[in-house]
Design a protein around this nucleic acid. Structure first.
Length: 204
DNA sequence: CCGGTGATGTTC
DNA sequence: AACATCACCGGG
């Protein structure tokens, strides 16, 4: 599996919008101390340097610094106080652009993902609710929790040198649909959201 | 629909 | 120091 990692050159080869589409069909893998979990990327969003919705738009601060790193850097941030989202940094060093991973089709470690998703951090215990396969990684916050991705661990690491990595495309013959990004105000008119047509694992 | 939740950036 | 914002999710 490790040997199927995307090469560094893959992340450097494309502009951000193209990379966001090229990552569809690839597998996101986390080789964690608790076990391996993975899923096929079925939904992404591009965030560009000249794009007001981009965290790095006109600002280079401690939080956004990973976005200015080399392509393939991992950018994890906290949102709404309780969720984290994971991005693949794109373009050249010193240009703040990235691709947000929004949904996965789960492949390996499904039970572990269900366990992670079922853990109620407020009550500090696991709850009984059974989470449907389709719901496991449908959304950026959900997939980060299911995959066990942690800002404190993975932020500013590189996909080529981390327990979190991406392998070459394993999905074949799919159509890519472009549309407006989800959950943002500025830049909502830009068609920078990409997803696999007819996949039942994408968010809405 | 609506509110929880906390880091971040901006304004004072 | 205070405030507005926020690439979300789950309960209703």
């Amino acid at each position: 599996m490790e040997e199927n990692k995307l090469p560094l050159s893959f992340y450097q080869a494309y502009d951000t919008c193209t990379l966001a589409q090229k990552l569809l069909g690839c597998e996101l893998v986390h080789n964690s101390p608790d076990g391996i979990t993975s899923g096929i990327i079925v939904e992404t969003e591009a965030y560009l340097a000249d794009d007001p919705a981009c965290h790095a738009y006109n600002r280079r601060t401690p939080r956004t610094e990973p976005m200015y790193g080399p392509a393939g850097t991992i950018y994890v941030y906290l949102i709404y106080g309780m969720y984290q989202c994971v991005n693949v940094v794109s373009n050249r060093e010193d240009i703040g652009e990235a691709v947000l991973i929004r949904a996965l089709q789960p492949t390996q470690g499904i039970e572990l993902m269900q366990t992670r998703r079922s853990f109620n951090q407020k009550k500090q215990r696991e709850e009984n609710r059974k989470i449907a396969l389709k719901e496991l990684c449908r959304g950026p916050g959900k997939l980060v929790k299911a995959m066990g991705i942690e800002r404190s661990v993975h932020n500013n690491q590189h996909l080529f040198d981390s327990s979190l990595f991406i392998t070459k495309p394993i999905m074949e013959d799919f159509t890519i649909v472009a549309g407006s990004r989800i959950g943002i105000n500025v830049g909502r008119d830009l068609p920078y959201r990409y997803y696999v047509h007819n996949s039942s694992f994408t968010s809405k």
